[in-house]
Deep mutational scan, measured.
Amino acid sequence: SKICLVCGDEASGCHYGVVTCGSCKVFFKRAVEGQHNYLCAGRNDCIIDKIRRKNCPACRLQKCLQAGMNLGARKS
Rank of each mutant, 00 (worst) to 15 (best):
L5G: 06
N37T: 11
Q62T: 09
R74P: 11
N70V: 12
L61Y: 15
N70Q: 12
M69S: 02
Y38F: 11
S23V: 04
A41Y: 13
Q66G: 10
K29Y: 15
C64N: 00
C46M: 01
R74F: 07
C46F: 01
L39Q: 13
I48F: 06
C46S: 00
G68H: 02
Y38V: 14
E33Y: 07
A58I: 01
K25G: 09
A11I: 02
E10R: 06
N55Y: 04
K2S: 04
E33K: 15
N70L: 07
M69G: 03
G22N: 03
V19Q: 12
G72N: 09
G68T: 02
S12W: 04
S76E: 10
Q66M: 08
V32M: 15
Y38G: 04
V18Y: 03
G13Y: 03
H15E: 11
V18E: 04
Y16R: 08
F27M: 00
D45C: 13
D49P: 02
N37R: 13
K2M: 08
T20H: 04
R43L: 09
K2D: 09
G22R: 06
G72D: 14
G42W: 05
G17L: 05
M69N: 02
C24R: 00
K25C: 12
R52C: 10
N37G: 09
C59N: 01
A58S: 14
I3N: 12
S1L: 06
C64G: 12
Y38C: 04
C24F: 00
N44K: 14
H15L: 07
E10Q: 15
V18G: 06
P57H: 13
V26H: 11
C14P: 08
N44R: 13
N55R: 12
S1R: 06
V18L: 09
S76M: 07
V19A: 14
M69F: 03
G42R: 09
L61Q: 13
C40R: 00
M69A: 09
G42P: 02
S23E: 13
V18A: 05
G8M: 09
K63F: 04
I3K: 04
R52L: 05
I47K: 14
D45M: 09
I48M: 14
C59S: 01
A41F: 03
A67C: 11
R74S: 13
K54P: 08
V6W: 02
A11L: 04
I47C: 15
D45V: 08
N44A: 12
A67Y: 03
V26R: 15
T20P: 01
K25A: 08
A41R: 12
K25L: 11
G22A: 12
C24E: 00
L5K: 15
C46T: 00
C64T: 02
S76T: 14
A67I: 08
L5P: 08
A67G: 08
G34V: 06
D9S: 06
G13T: 14
K29T: 12
A58N: 11
F28N: 01
R74K: 14
N37H: 10
N55L: 12
H36L: 07
V26T: 09
V6P: 01
I3M: 04
N70S: 15
I47E: 11
D9C: 05
Q62E: 09
C7G: 00
K75Y: 09
V26F: 15
R30Y: 05
C46Y: 01
E10G: 15
V26Q: 13
